[in-house]
Design a protein around this nucleic acid. Structure first.
Lengths: 229, 229
DNA sequence: AAAAAGAACTGATAAATGTCATATTTTTAA
DNA sequence: TTAAAAATATGACATTTATCAGTTCTTTTT
């Protein structure tokens, strides 16, 4: 298993690629690699982070507990994404919990390495900024979806999102399998409602399922549904 | 009317304060000041921006058109805030429209001045980054509210937000008056639903109204409502 | 392999929210 | 100032979504 950041492919996908050789070396020397089992937290809402997590493998859900006791999943982070940036940059506690959706491998990078580079390497800072600008745009889109689309549309959209971002396995099921509860927490609805709508999609031939696995059968119709037909 | 950025008080509230004297001078020399009447757009969703807008006076709503034809207001920006940053930084079209909620005075700063400083002044970049990190956190909170709170709770929260961020006039009405439609677009509901709930709040003595003006009468109860009693 | 625990699912019903129609008030413009 | 237009308000009703109760299926543990 490759363990030097300099050679890590994952880096291609995130802001670390804007680091200089020396900076990268420092990061590599100070980082620690960690395995996180499915269901375990990388960090919890309200924690103070001493660094960021770079996802090497697996998927993490970023969620926030609402007043009514339900988790709202705000984002799914996968290979190459850096978690905890926002909190380290703003020097605040995290506003979100990060929990492994499946077994993960992550690198922990102490905040000193990050802050150091942020102050010295404008290219890196700009790259991080661009990334955050992108995240902000996505968050705006989520806000609009949440408030203007029906639960049915949001679930359809979630399946399309999962297909586009995580792909399918050889049997045609979505490569990332979420529990019904997780799905309901992504779209912000009651678990029963999500289950009911998934059953309905199945009956209508939009998807097929096997246990908790879901496969997309009629993508076109799902797209139409999302767009409001 | 003061017209040099160097002396503009508004600057205290935004990232421009991290600019050097020279940089600020350049900005000041290249900027143009503009009045925007209530209801007029600063820019529209999908436009390519050649710079950012610094709000000197008035309030702008940042909104996005949803597939069902309704505007979703994502943020209200007031004195000191810089609009269009995200789009200029990511070099993308805007994802939001900015429309004046009341008469505004804004400065337009060409993107060259911004980009120039972003590349040369890490402090400025970092300051912008911090700002964006903050915006992102707020956006996450909005997502959770939108998906986990009832319309009633969201309207109560909107009133409290308006009070905390824009204050009250001498008669005890919220200083920023939004139309019922704007309120419904902030909380993501049908205008009729918003009106109905506002009437209900009035009947229960939580607020008082006069025309479209709204005043908070029982803040405590509103807070309780938001928190789920 | 059996028992226990946890997901997934279904039905019945209540509550929340949207839609459409229409009346009233307020604002705008002629 | 008056007519027209736009915004606010309310009722009736349809639709969507949540809640609660219970069943079946899966997975985990012993």
């Amino acid at each position: 298993m490759e363990s030097r950041c300099e050679n890590c492919i994952v880096r291609q996908f995130n802001s670390l690629r804007a680091m200089s050789k020396d900076e990268l070396k420092q990061v590599s020397d100070s980082k620690t690699t960690k395995k996180v089992k499915k269901g375990e937290p990388l960090f919890e809402e309200g924690e103070k982070l001493n660094g960021v997590f770079c996802v090497r493998d697996g998927v993490s859900k970023l969620s926030k507990l609402s007043a009514n006791g339900k988790d709202q999943i705000v984002k799914l982070a996968t290979k190459g994404e850096v978690l905890g940036q926002r909190s380290v940059i703003a020097e605040e506690c995290t506003n979100l919990s990060a929990i492994a959706v499946n077994d993960m491998e992550v690198c922990f990078i102490p905040k000193e390495s990050i802050n150091n580079t942020l102050q010295k390497n404008p290219n890196f800072t700009l790259e991080v900024l661009r990334h955050m600008a992108h995240d902000l745009k996505e968050a705006d889109d989520v806000i609009v979806n949440m408030s203007q689309k029906t639960v049915k549309q949001r679930i359809a959209e979630a399946f399309l999102y999962l297909k586009n971002n995580f792909g399918e396995d050889d049997e045609g099921f979505l490569a990332l399998t979420l529990s019904r509860e997780d799905i309901s927490n992504v779209v912000g609805t009651a678990t029963e409602s999500a289950i009911r709508i998934i059953s309905e999609f199945k009956k209508k031939g939009l998807i097929h399922t096997s246990g908790k696995k879901v496969g997309i059968k009629n993508e076109r119709k799902l797209v139409e549904l999302v767009e409001g037909f």
